[in-house]
Each structure stands twice: as structure tokens, then as C-alpha cells.
């Protein structure tokens, strides 16, 4: 076997240190959520009572966050995919301007966007206190991620010729869009969805201003818990957050792996 030089071990050590730097706080935080008394340390024993406490008091924030994320995904799919399609098909000054404008909510600090929303719509009581008010903020913030990711795939495949091929076989616009455009942009749509879901679940900046005491999302609740309650509760909250988000991410990744086209049943196979 080739002997490895000092530089290899230096690089390995550096990589491990960086990983540890990122992962250890997460692990410690999760562990803190399971410790009887954090100030005494792990010796005080492990318990699930903090997790139970979080579940009792903050259940609503979790369901609101998940619901928001799903609603936000639905909105960005319905708005973002057709928008990306138009941007991909019509390359001109106007569409390029739209593309740039879409990114504004990401470039502008979330607090500024939230303030603008409050200034504009704050007077509409019903809307201001409803969860849909937060949804609007989340959609503004996540839409560019969906559009960009779908647009990247649409630009990479020769969408125009594929559509012309389908049209020459008699397919109208709707058929082309659903049979050809959408399936061939699947990877972009899945990647975009993944971004939108995680960004929406974790969004704090904007939500902190948009929320009302009755409409707290998970990250807002988390801030609340860390600020006003025991550290163990905040940490247990983080633990619950992970348990929620990790399976979601894994599921999306599983969907994202490319799928082989389904074989069509042919004559010799029909029963």
C-alpha cells in the first residue's frame, strides 16, 4: 500500500476538526434536552420529561410549522413552476428583469420584507392575525429557490425541441406540459421542493415579526423557549425539531433519486 504523507493526515485532521466543530454543538444540544439537570451534567441522569414538556406546550407550533411548509410548497409549486416555464421559454429583457426581481426577498433582510408586509396589510385585522399572513412572507422568501431550481433544469434540457416533437405527434399545450415538460423537470421540481420545505420550516427572521401570540411557528417557539425557560426545554425542543425535519429530508432525497421510465405493457404481455 502506498504510504500516506504528512499532508494527508493534516488534511484528515482538519476535516475532522471542522466536522466536530459543526456536529458537537448539535449533539450537545440534543443531549442537553435529555439531561435531568444540565448544570449538574449528564451525571444527573437521562430523562424524557423535557421532551414531554415541549410536546405539551409547543405541539401547536410544530403543527403550524409543518402546515405552513406544506402550504408554502403548494403555493411555490403552483406559482413557481409555470413562472419558470415562461422564463425558460421567453428570454427577453422583461423576463430577465422578472428573474432578478424574484430574488429580491432573499437579498433584502427578512425583517425589512416583514415590515413592508405589516405596513401594507397590517390594517386588515383578519388577515394580519391569520396564519396565511405568515404564509405570504414564506412564499415571497422561498419562491426564488423553486423558480431557480426548476429554471436550471429547464435550461439544461432542450425543452423547445422536446415540445415540438410532442406537438408534431398531435399533443396540444396541456398534454405537452403535463406529459413532457413536468416529468422532464422532475429533478428540478424535487430539488426546489426540498429547499422550500426546509427554508419554510426553519425561517425565523421574517416570521418573528409576522407572528402573533396565537400563531407561533417552531423556530419562534424555540427562541421563546430559550429566552424564557430552562435550557433543557429549549434543547429538548431542538431535539424534536431534528426528529421532525430529518425524516422529511430523507424522504425527499429518496424521491429525488432518478427513476427509470416505467415500461409500457406490450401486446405479448397482455393476459
Amino acid at each position: 500500500m502506498k504510504t500516506r504523507g504528512a499532508s494527508f493526515f493534516l488534511q484528515l485532521a482538519f476535516t475532522l476538526i471542522v466536522c466536530a466543530f459543526l456536529i458537537v454543538p448539535v449533539l450537545l444540544s440534543m443531549l442537553a434536552g435529555l439531561t435531568e439537570n444540565y448544570l449538574v451534567g449528564i451525571g444527573s441522569g437521562l430523562t424524557l420529561k423535557w421532551v414531554a414538556n415541549v410536546w405539551d406546550n409547543y405541539r401547536d407550533t410544530m403543527f403550524l410549522s409543518l402546515g405552513l411548509a406544506v402550504a408554502c410548497l403548494a403555493c411555490t409549486l403552483v406559482i413557481g413552476v409555470p413562472a419558470a416555464y415562461v422564463l425558460a421559454k421567453r428570454q427577453n429583457m422583461f423576463t430577465r428583469a422578472v428573474e432578478e426581481l424574484l430574488v429580491m426577498p432573499v437579498a433584502v433582510p427578512g425583517l425589512a420584507t416583514a415590515l413592508a408586509l405589516i405596513v401594507t396589510y397590517g390594517a386588515l385585522r383578519g388577515f394580519r392575525t391569520s396564519w396565511t399572513f405568515i404564509l405570504v412572507g414564506h412564499v415571497l422568501f422561498t419562491l426564488p429557490f423553486m423558480v431557480r431550481s426548476v429554471l436550471a433544469v429547464m435550461s439544461a434540457i432542450d425543452l423547445k425541441t422536446l415540445e415540438e416533437g410532442a406537438a408534431s405527434l398531435g399533443a396540444g399545450f396541456r398534454q405537452r406540459f403535463f406529459h413532457i415538460v413536468l416529468p422532464n423537470c422532475r429533478s428540478g421540481i424535487v430539488a426546489g421542493s426540498l429547499m422550500v420545505l426546509t427554508l419554510s420550516v426553519g425561517e425565523f427572521n421574517m416570521t418573528w415579526l409576522l407572528h402573533t401570540p396565537l400563531n407561533k411557528t417552531l423556530p419562534v417557539g424555540l427562541a421563546d423557549a430559550y429566552a424564557s425557560l430552562r435550557l433543557e426545554i429549549g434543547s429538548a425542543y431542538t431535539l424534536v425539531f431534528f426528529i421532525m425535519i430529518v425524516p422529511l429530508l430523507l424522504a425527499m432525497q429518496a424521491i429525488a433519486t432518478p427513476r427509470k421510465p416505467r415500461p409500457v405493457r406490450r401486446e405479448d404481455e397482455t393476459p
Binding site: 434540457i157 432542450d158 425541441t161 422536446l162 415540438e164 416533437g165 410532442a166 406529459h179 413532457i180 416529468p183 422532464n184 422532475r186 421510465p261 416505467r262 415500461p263 409500457v264
Partner: peptide, 8 residues
């Protein structure tokens, strides 16, 4: 060719 990659 413009064959559809999502179909066999």
C-alpha cells in the same frame, strides 16, 4: 431526435 427521456 427530440426523444422523450421520461418514456421508454
Amino acid at each position: 431526435y427530440a426523444l422523450f427521456p421520461n418514456m421508454t
